[in-house]
Design a protein around this nucleic acid. Sequence first.
RNA 1: GCGGAUAUGGCGUAAUUGGUAGCCGCGCCAGACUUAGGAUCUGGUGCCGAAAGGCGUGGGGGUUCGAGUCCCUUUAUCCGCACCA
Length: 923
Amino acid sequence: MEYNFREIEEKWQQSWRESGTYKVETDTSREKYYVLDMFPYPSGAGLHVGHPLGYIASDIFSRYKRLRGFNVLHPMGYDSFGLPAEQYAIQTGQHPAVTTLNNIERYRNQLDRMGFAYDWSREVRTSDPSYYRWTQWIFLKLFGSWYNVASGKAEPIASLISIFSRSGNKGVQAVCDETVSFTADEWNAMEPKEQQLVLLKYRLAFLSETMVNWCPGLGTVLANEEVKDGVSERGGFPVERKKMKQWSMRISAYAERLLEGLDHIDWSESLKEAQRNWIGKSEGAMVRFKLADATPANNNLIEVFTTRPDTIFGVSFITLAPEHELVEHITTPEYAGAVANYVAYAKNRSERERMTDVRKVTGQFTGAYVIHPFTGKNIPVWIGDYVLAGYGTGAVMGVPGHDGRDHAFASHFHLDIIEVVKGGDVSSEAYEAKSGQLVNSDFLNGLEVEDAIQLAIKKITENGFGERKINYRLRDAIFGRQRYWGEPIPVYYIDGIPYPLNESELPLVLPEIDTFLPTPDGDPPLGRAIEWKHNGNYSYELSTMPGWAGSSWYFLRYMDPDNTEAIASAEALDYWKQVDLYLGGSEHATGHLLYVRFWTKFLFDINVIKVDEPAKKLINQGMIQGTSCFVYRINGTNKFVSYGFKDKFITTALHVDVNIVNNNILDIDAFRKWRDEYADAEFELEDGKYICGTEVEKMSKSKWNVVSPDDIIAQYGADCFRMYEMFLGPIEQSKPWNTNGITGVFNFLRKFWKLWFSNGTYNVSDEAPSPSELKILHKTIKKVTEDIERFSFNTSVSSFMICVNELTELKCNKRSILEPLAILIAPFAPHIAEELWSKMGHQQSIVNAQFPIFNQSFLADNEFEYPVSVNGKTRFKITLPLGMTKEQVEESVLGAGEMGKYLNGNAPKKVIVVPGRIVNVVV
RNA sequence: GCGGAUAUGGCGUAAUUGGUAGCCGCGCCAGACUUAGGAUCUGGUGCCGAAAGGCGUGGGGGUUCGAGUCCCUUUAUCCGCACCA
């Protein structure tokens, strides 16, 4: 009987589906293990060979854990709200729900063919009202909470209201927007509307006037991480900065906890580093400079943030961001025109330009001066677009001697450069190192930088010029998208004030609309749902939630996906707790993975869950890149030249479908048929062939380098595909896709299969195993177990190959060896394992078997060949029985005849014995 | 500029704590069976050399009896962030 993977795989996939093999229940009598894949956005292109890499790895691990007796939760679902389906709807009119449904069906089909052990009864879809009802519920909780710095957690807004009515906001330590202070009486005297506006500044989900990344091409705002190099990540449309009234999430309240939590989770260092970087904690001081001429705004003060308060005596100017609110108040009439011009210039310079000529120094003097707090000297106030409005206070103290950007600014505008730290030549270049002695700095003179920083902060604080301050780069997350295909924000407006829906009114279902474009007067598409009103009267919020909303808590929903009373039952939440192993791409480092940690911490604060990190361990699978192929068209013609001639002409490289290229040789007939415009293409060939150029790139439809797993599975089967993807290399490494070695894996599976058959018929014997067979088996058990535990699946595949080669050589067909071997391979190649398992007479699925336990005693050899090194070089070998003590080995080696010629009757200087490994003699 | 990672045969890679570098697979070479096939089996395959032997983990240096592994330095590639005060 031949290895017929097609028949086997179809048979078992059907059997698993019908008998619910992978269904999991909450079972408190057993130890749980939760393995999660980052759920996919179901795109129209379907899966390519890169997607399953992580899914296969997590599947192997979850199957392994199950064989080890754990109650394993391993679910899958879809992040099914998103822009592409909506863009498609705009183009074709097809409802995004329909597009999404079709895509999901295709994904499911492809996933099923790979034999994954998902419990599909727990599937979630973020676009399903029964799911997003709870996303909206979490929004309401966030809306109804504020962050109390004193208790270090989120609290209900009611507690804040009661504080306000008792003692105003003076003693309240909250993370909030800037507010004026008020007393209890003032609070109680406020109109309800006014009170709501104040509360909005404290809520964790809040509405505010903020600078946003506006993308006219997509007609929506985008989050910082959705903007790359000044254009939108999806679609590549230009993005501009714009002030808009927007929903945001006060993630900044959690900055410190998000940072601190990284120390307690087992995530890759590079990923943690990326998050630390994104949070961007810096310690320093807030310093206030008094304006020389009185200005009504802001108590006559300019606040700056600095990490180098020690250089306070080196300040020779102050720079404000052009958008800084004080600019218009402090500018003197003499400079008003120039300042207005500069502000306009900076505003029109797009994000992209700002990024591309970072080093271009521009700025403008305002005519205003501040007074140096210690020296009393007048210091000019400038504006410059190297200062960012969004970071710190939007103002910096210019210390040209010790900051490169300030130095460039001062040099360009001929401002004073004062040396205050010794160690460099400040006339030519800023000395930025945090070491050296302070000079020209009054009470700081002679101190080292570290000490000077401390003393400077002390003096600044004592004199009321400022205080110690920790600043974070992390910005609050914009939460509204002016799009249709997302969760409606469960809020309605009365008189411009947002009010939350009642929990009982959820879900607020997305209304049907006829066109998915903004309304003629510029409202988001939801503005087209004219009848859609709260109580028939009040307008709902017209923006929807961003893509990350639904994915920020989905790991919890899998625990109890059909619950209609809560996000999940307390029982399920208590049992499954958090994800033990999370697998996904590193591209989510500063997006999804930060937001999901944020929401987890929030849900922890409000006692919905008992853990405050979503995933204990996280592995980033590498990306499988595609190999793009190129043809070279001579410009202005329909003539294509082979790779070797491309530099002889002026050519344009064009992507060509990799499926019509074989070994870099273009199938010319297929190319002519590929597109009408190429039907009469002409070619210049090399040796009668058209050679394509290649490049390794991200696999993508637009690059025509997508390889679908379907073709591979059709040719070699899912088991082979799974093992081959693992065999390619370490899971975390990115690598270009190629099928060069797949025949090796396929041959292995056939050899493996043949162990159970002689001359084509099933033949397994009940004979007792020999010591050498047991040794092979246990060597493999040991290796594979260790490999799986450390996620080194490529080496496990190698171990299986060695094992099968050795057993084939021994013609071993003994049940006592083959049975454990089948279990061992089951996580990797579940179909073939299941088939052989049932051939051996088992009624129950192999997934319920027990993973074989390694037994050291079968490995023991009775002798070992020691390589004997003399002065580090291996000179000869000596065979000794195992189990000798260090001293016995040493004695035997020194007594060996060959040792004599190195010793010449002298005693060795030193003998190093590593039992069972090596002996080294130093002479 | 800052941060992170990687570097081993022709190729993908392996080498738990420093202990015989190159497992396994691909490719290649030779042979067998067969006959024109991208099939199967057997043997070989880091480099130089006829051999003895020598050299070998991006380069240079160090620690050690012994370094792919530890330390310093340098180069290249990839990824993330980037006027963050």
